[in-house]
Design a protein around this nucleic acid. Sequence first.
DNA 1: ATACATACC
DNA 2: TACTGGTATGTAT
Length: 867
Amino acid sequence: EANYIICCDSSGFLSRMALNDNKAGMEGLDRDKINKIIMESSKGSRFYENELKKEEQVNQRIEKMMLQKAKITEQHLKKAQAQVDRMATELERSRDLSRVIVHVDMDAFYAAVEMRDCPELKDKPMAVGSMSMLSTSNYHARKYGVRAAMPGFIAKKLCPDLVIVPTNFDKYRAVSKEIREIFAEYDPHFQPLSLDEAYLDFTDHLDQRQSWPDTLREEQIELPQETVPEMKDLSPVLFEDSPSSSPCLLDSTGFGAAGGGFEVFGKSAEEAVREMRFRIEQKTMLTASAGIAPNMMLAKVCSDKNKPNGQYRLPSTKEAVMDFVQNLPVRKICGIGKVSEKMLNALGISNCFHLSQQMALLSLLFSETAWHHFMQVSLGLGSTHIPRHEERKSMSTERTFREMSKTEEQLSLCRELCEDLAEDLKKEGLKGKTVTLKLKNVKFEVKTRALTLPYAVATVDEIFAVAKDLLKTERDNESPLPLRLRLMGVRISAFASADDKKPLQKSIVGFLQPDKTDSSCASQGIHQKMEKEHLSNHSFQTLTLAPLPLAQKCQREEVTGWRKQRGLEGSKTGEEPQQSFFQRAHAKRMQLQVANASAQEEKHGESTSAVTPTCTQKGLEASTEVHESNCTASDASENDLVAPVEAHASTSGFGSTVSERFTCPVCFRLVETTDLTVFNKHIDQCLSDTSRKPNQIAASDSESDVDLENDHTECEVAGRRRGDSEVEEDKAKSSEEMDSSGAEPQEDQRSSKNKSVQMALSIDCDNKTVTSQRPQSCNNKGPVLVCPICQLTQDSNDLVLFNRHVDLCLNQEVLHELGGQASCPINPPAVTNFKALGKDVRDPPSSPPSKKSKGLGPRNTIDKFFR
DNA sequence: ATACATACC
DNA sequence: TACTGGTATGTAT
């Protein structure tokens, strides 16, 4: 058997070096040519030599396994087979096909975000990362063999025209937040795996969906992106009592006729998932793929099946599952990587049918956990319920650098790492007992050295004291030779907070639990935040008698999505904006709720309150207050005060990704300056204008069109400029610094430019492509423009004015939330809030732009590994 | 408990 | 010039 080792490398390349061409978009490549280039680029390097060594270790492992195999007798196998069969029966009994599990995965996530924000990149091969390492590549680049986890300099050899864009982690995190908001509406307990992917349990959502009246779905015809899920959160009473809230929609069959071939998002799992993906695309302009299956293991595989921008559903029958699994290459299974694949291959196992056939053998050659896993996989079994996100078990930081041999340098670096780690620990309120030092020398050999203390530590000095000792010991071991390092890392584990608090106060563990997680686990921040919002919104529900927790939560999303529509329909065509059913329903509900307040408010006419009714209307105080405290509580934990502005800006349709332009949060115009003081001055100007005559600002702004054009032009120029220089350090840096206010807005400029792109959204529906077009006009009735934020009917029929008004309102809402957080939560005057925000906006972000994503997923999402 | 390997993104 | 960084878990000692 030993000569198998020669066989399996007969391709001439090390299996761990060769191209993984299994990734979506990498079919039919010239593998040999690509591998040759990879090998030539690598050969002789220290990295390569180390890979050779590791490969050899794997080979020896395989050799050992084969020797074991040779000793196995028929008797052994028979006995093992009996055990396997018994277990299979048992597992079979546990098979549960009743759940609908979905795995969603954004397509080439980082690359897609960068392409979205810089159209110049659209038709170029590009990748995100650096000359040293790429995180992901777009599909164009994949044709050249350029893929995630490949060093940039090799990628450049494969594809000299490759554009490498530095990672802009904050941006991906912002997009991630957006998509997670959508996930939460289908499964509030969804489990994020990384910034760009998640598991969702659709079972409950689909149950609810079955009870939706068909008439609701008709609304989907009109605006599929104004999706149904929110509707379930609308009071049924509202729907039944307010048929007039959507008069022109109830007989909206004309839409189908007008556009033709609309996708109606119905009640099936496929339709629901397609709807979710559609919403993701609407909200982020990025596509996602999804897999639908009875368990997590299968869903994950399925999401890859029709990538990119596709989905695949595996029917919930044993036959379909078994059929699917048997043909599955083992490498596709999550948890079976390069090495396991190679070991299995050595046994003649390459797909899951082989796996099931060889289970007895595997049970004798592999560990119990390993073969049990194989067993589950071969039966098509997996988790049918999504586990709650667990507490983190370790936290670490590491850095790669050019050779470092001097003791003092190493010590000071070690201290720096400890400082970073201590800072991160503090953020989550964690203390750990075990400190681990990681070292990688210039030969790429990795060592870890750990020490467990009898008590938990968290401060720089405590951690450094341990790490320093470990480093010293290691140096002493090597002496008189120096440690020639290329990487150093410090990790802390064996956290105390979880173990220590419980025993102390056992009787009130139930009370402490939520508290503890709240304060100590930022890794679950988003999830918890959602849950928290959910909870608080329940109180909102009881207060106002009109629940809509999700509707409330999604208001901005809905509005901004709709704003995009308006941006497209644009002032030029002068067409009616289309309010979605949801928006009208929401508006109606609000009107009902605060009928008195509205009346009051109207009396005040042009006072400040007309612009910020949600802030000042007495009748709204109760509801807005609760709503705000939600936001305050959750936003505060996010530690970035500008985030909401960013969220707004990202869909507001103004601004650019270029750092020397800032979007004024008040007037939404681009301010062209590198000087923050200038920008501040501008904001001050706007603020004083706003507080004086808010409506006039909107109403008198007859240059909106021109402004739009200007902004548009600027943006194009900016885009071109950015495209010219592939990797411009300065810009990248300052762009990061001002990311929250400067990076996203460019979008809608592009949107308005590429009207048709947005207007015609192609939805992949499992092989056929359906194009959904927004109707050019819905009705020619009189102008009834109701601001979805303040619920006020606008007198003007002019879309530009209307847009401005909504912009203003939307922003004021954000400002109000911020103001409430910073100062007095109860009904502060709008102007005060502006000031509060002005400050926050003007202060450049104090924290370094791209920190870690502790617990929120890996920083560099390599979007998938393929063979 | 420690060290190292594998895996995931 | 140049082959990551963060977390979890499995395996072996």
